[in-house]
Design a protein around this nucleic acid. Structure first.
Length: 152
DNA sequence: GCCAACGTTGGC
DNA sequence: GCCAACGTTGGC
């Protein structure tokens, strides 16, 4: 069992959208490292934080669960999609994604609060220049955020 | 809107 | 294989 952080711009797809849809495809990832996390390291049942970025109040806003194994991302073959990849071969798709299921909302744990927790100092999403839409979360970090969530 | 950071691309 | 240019991301 591993832990993850899924980052999304709420103007594109936020926790409200996921709460409504219950399950969504984490498609459109065009970064090899993030793809490898989904393809090689994620397991159904893994849990993650849902994080809002590029918005007035960036931070963790919910808990999600990996709903199934990675599969070929259909948007790479869709010529009309902004994620279309003419270099991807149907017989050996370049891009994969998992489905993510809504688990619960949380109160907002904003960036300043995350940065204020010493145990989260090495959390990947907080590092300079981080741009991955998926980052691993250690068990210690997961527990630390859970404790923050218990406070109000 | 600005700026820093990073990945990708393409010329050589 | 190198590296400059470019596009994208994300916090402020």
């Amino acid at each position: 069992m591993s832990y993850w952080l899924f980052k999304s711009e709420p103007s594109a797809y936020g926790i409200d959208d996921l709460a409504r849809d219950r399950v969504t495809a984490w498609s459109g990832v065009r970064n090899y490292q993030a793809r490898n996390y989904m393809r090689d390291a994620m397991r159904p049942g893994d849990r993650g934080f849902f994080y809002h970025s590029s918005c007035p109040e960036p931070g963790i806003v919910g808990i999600v669960e990996v709903a199934g194994p990675a599969y070929a991302d259909p948007t790479q073959f869709d010529r009309k999609s902004r994620y279309y990849d003419s270099g991807s071969d149907r017989a050996a798709p370049r891009w994969l994604n998992v489905d993510v299921r809504f688990a619960s909302r949380t109160r907002l744990v904003g960036l300043a609060e995350l940065r204020g927790a010493k145990k989260l100092r090495s959390m990947q999403v907080l590092q300079r220049g981080n741009r991955l839409s998926i980052t691993p979360v250690t068990e210690a970090e997961w527990v630390c955020v859970q404790r923050l969530l218990e406070k109000t």
